[in-house]
Deep mutational scan, measured.
Amino acid sequence: MAMNGTITTWFKDKGFGFIKDENGDNRYFHVIKVANPDLIKKDAAVTFEPTTNNKGLSAYAVKVVPL
């Protein structure tokens, strides 16, 4: 089920960042999981599918909501 969130941290040079989800949890995401990576920036609103990996909470099918 899709969730909403906000990008809180973005490491462009490393290709990953973190999203604060609607429950207040931080989720890892990688640029290859983003549909529109050219719009990635700190504080951008996103929708995504929540999941977990071996390191904890993460996100896939991430879409940055255009302003």
Score class of each variant (00 low, 15 high):
M1T: 15
M1K: 14
M1R: 13
M1S: 15
M1H: 13
M1Q: 11
A2W: 12
A2S: 13
A2C: 13
A2N: 11
A2G: 10
A2M: 13
A2T: 15
A2R: 15
M3T: 05
M3Q: 05
M3L: 13
M3H: 06
M3R: 07
M3F: 07
M3P: 03
N4C: 13
N4R: 14
N4M: 13
N4G: 09
N4W: 14
G5V: 02
G5F: 02
T6G: 02
T6W: 13
T6R: 12
T6C: 11
T6Y: 13
I7N: 00
I7S: 01
I7Q: 00
I7H: 00
I7R: 01
I7E: 00
I7G: 01
T8N: 07
T8I: 14
T8Q: 09
T8W: 08
T9C: 14
T9R: 14
T9Y: 14
T9H: 15
W10P: 00
W10K: 00
W10R: 00
F11P: 01
F11I: 07
K12D: 06
D13C: 12
D13R: 11
D13V: 10
K14I: 05
K14H: 08
K14L: 11
K14A: 09
K14D: 06
G15M: 07
G15H: 07
F16E: 03
F16W: 12
F16T: 03
G17M: 02
G17P: 00
G17T: 01
G17K: 02
G17Q: 01
G17L: 02
G17R: 02
F18S: 04
F18L: 05
F18E: 02
F18M: 05
F18P: 00
I19A: 00
I19C: 02
I19M: 04
I19P: 00
K20E: 07
K20A: 07
K20S: 07
K20N: 07
K20C: 13
K20D: 04
D21H: 02
D21K: 01
D21Q: 02
D21R: 01
D21I: 01
D21N: 00
D21C: 03
D21L: 03
D21V: 02
D21G: 04
E22S: 10
E22Y: 06
N23A: 08
N23I: 06
G24I: 01
D25A: 09
D25Y: 08
D25H: 10
D25I: 06
D25V: 08
D25S: 08
D25K: 08
D25W: 06
N26M: 15
N26L: 15
N26E: 11
N26V: 14
N26R: 14
R27K: 00
R27N: 02
R27M: 02
R27I: 04
R27P: 00
Y28F: 13
Y28W: 11
Y28H: 06
Y28M: 06
F29H: 00
F29C: 02
F29R: 00
V31H: 08
V31W: 10
V31F: 09
V31N: 05
V31M: 09
I32R: 15
I32C: 15
I32M: 15
I32Y: 14
K33F: 15
K33I: 11
V34S: 05
V34W: 03
A35I: 15
A35V: 15
A35R: 11
A35E: 13
A35F: 14
N36E: 06
N36D: 06
N36T: 07
N36C: 07
N36F: 06
P37R: 08
P37D: 03
P37F: 04
D38F: 09
D38I: 08
L39E: 10
L39R: 10
L39C: 13
I40H: 02
I40F: 05
K41E: 10
K41V: 10
K41L: 07
K42G: 04
K42C: 09
K42D: 04
D43L: 10
D43V: 03
A44Q: 06
A44S: 07
A44C: 09
A44R: 09
A45W: 12
A45I: 11
A45Y: 12
A45R: 14
V46H: 01
V46N: 01
T47S: 08
T47L: 09
T47W: 07
T47P: 01
E49N: 14
E49H: 15
E49Q: 15
E49L: 15
E49S: 14
P50G: 05
P50I: 06
P50M: 04
P50W: 04
P50A: 07
P50Y: 04
P50R: 03
T51P: 03
T51I: 13
T52G: 10
T52L: 09
T52I: 10
T52F: 12
T52W: 12
T52V: 12
N53A: 08
N53L: 08
N53M: 08
N53W: 09
N54W: 13
N54A: 14
K55D: 07
G56D: 04
L57N: 05
L57H: 05
L57V: 03
S58P: 02
S58M: 10
A59K: 01
A59V: 08
A59M: 04
Y60K: 15
Y60V: 15
Y60W: 10
Y60P: 01
Y60N: 15
A61C: 13
A61H: 12
A61P: 02
A61E: 09
A61L: 09
A61N: 15
V62R: 00
V62Y: 02
V62D: 01
V62A: 01
V62I: 14
K63M: 12
K63W: 13
K63A: 08
K63D: 05
V64Y: 03
V64F: 04
V64K: 00
V64E: 01
V65I: 13
V65S: 08
V65K: 09
V65F: 10
V65P: 02
P66Q: 12
P66V: 14
P66A: 13
L67Q: 13
L67K: 12
